[in-house]
């Protein structure tokens, strides 16, 4: 089977969605099919641009390539899943979130433009009209399915995928830091973790890894760090290799991952694979599908105090951190999260 994985790519930005597309491509090839990622460049501002990208997608022909039919198109991200194809299957990473749950939210941008509402409504209409064109509708997480149902009234099934290099994760000693590997961006809330550190009673330390979407957020984090006088309790690793990431997970005391309404969140799964407890928040979305509060980590209020309390408990009680981490690993294994399952469903 010749399969195109259609996604949208913001040039120079790399995150979970890109890893997911690559993982899927690799997994389909591993099953003996031809697969290729077709990434549509995407820019979402000013909002009028979005409509142009949507139109571009609707005008694209991916039914064949070089005279040979493309048997299946798997759509991942808005607006790439609008590309027409007679055998299209959706595996939705997310819709254009600022047109939906982030519309009137502190992370919303579209609402600040005079034509924002018109563009939002067009996105809603296009999704309602073109998503049902798909032969099957899957999402990467229950959280994404819930949103699709809530906003568009469309039913779908979540299809969990393992993180990249899942087989490499291992558990070593429980060290003296929490780990937070992620893009540095407001929606991941690294700033909330810094605020939490300032509230802990224990000398808790956090290692951050990842690069920034915008330099402004880095400056803000540095300023916050200085203001809170956190000094050597924070380490910035920046961009890290896969091996270094796996090693840092393996030696962490636990993992902290408190994004705002995350779609899925590989960090949670990576932590579970490394037998690490996860501290997350009630409004973090995807991680809540995996973290069992008090069993495999803590689900706290999205406040510095809430996270600080979880930090202190794990810091003081290392055996609790260990026990929760091991529970997480067991839970991961019980969920049968494998690429082969994903490929079977998407190519069925």
């Amino acid at each position: 089977m010749r399969v195109v994985i259609a996604t949208a790519q913001v040039p120079f930005i790399r995150g979970g969605a890109e890893i997911l597309a690559e993982g899927l491509c690799h997994a389909i090839r591993a099953e003996g099919h031809d697969a290729e990622i077709v990434a549509i460049p995407f820019k979402w501002y000013p909002p009028g641009r979005i409509i142009e990208y949507m139109l571009a997608c609707r005008l694209m022909d991916l039914t064949e390539s070089n005279g040979t039919p493309i048997d299946r198109l798997i759509g991942l991200k808005f607006p790439s899943y609008l590309i027409p194809h007679p055998n299209k299957v959706l595996w939705l990473v997310h819709q254009h979130r600022t047109a939906y749950e982030l519309w009137d939210h502190k992370f919303g941008d579209m609402i600040h433009f005079p034509n924002g509402k018109v563009v939002r409504d067009a996105i809603h209409l296009a999704d309602q009209k073109h998503i049902p064109e798909c032969k099957a509708i899957y999402t990467i997480a229950q959280n994404v399915s819930n949103r699709l149902k809530l906003f568009c009234g469309i039913d779908s099934s979540p299809l969990y995928s393992p993180p990249g290099s899942a087989e490499k994760f291992y558990a070593a000693d429980y060290g003296d830091y929490f780990y937070f590997p992620s893009r540095l961006t407001t929606i991941k809330r690294q700033d909330l973790v810094l605020q939490a550190l300032a509230k802990t009673k224990q000398p808790v330390r956090v290692k951050f890894a990842g690069i920034a979407d915008h330099q402004a957020y880095v400056s803000f984090l540095q300023e916050t760090l200085k203001t809170l006088n956190l000094g050597d309790r924070v380490e910035w690793q920046g961009r890290v290799s896969e091996d270094e990431k796996v090693r840092t997970y393996a030696n962490a005391l636990a993992v902290v991952y408190p994004p705002t309404d995350e779609d899925y969140g590989y960090v949670t799964l990576e932590a579970m694979l490394a037998s690490r407890a996860v501290v997350t928040c009630r409004d973090s979305g995807g991680p809540l599908e995996f973290v069992v509060d008090g069993q495999t980590g803590f689900v706290t209020e999205p406040t510095p105090e809430g996270i600080a309390e979880a930090f202190d408990r794990l810091w003081k009680d290392r055996s609790l951190a260990k026990r929760m981490g091991e529970n997480g690993k067991e839970r991961y294994e019980s969920m049968n999260i494998r690429w082969a399952n994903v490929v079977d469903r998407l190519l069925a």
Binding site: G48, E52, L55, V118, D121, A122
Partner: peptide, 16 residues
């Protein structure tokens, strides 16, 4: 008129 999806058409037509 303000929920009419045709509202996006004029600027798009102009640009195309």
């Amino acid at each position: 008129v303000q929920t009419d999806p045709a509202a996006i058409a004029p600027p798009l037509i102009e640009k195309v």
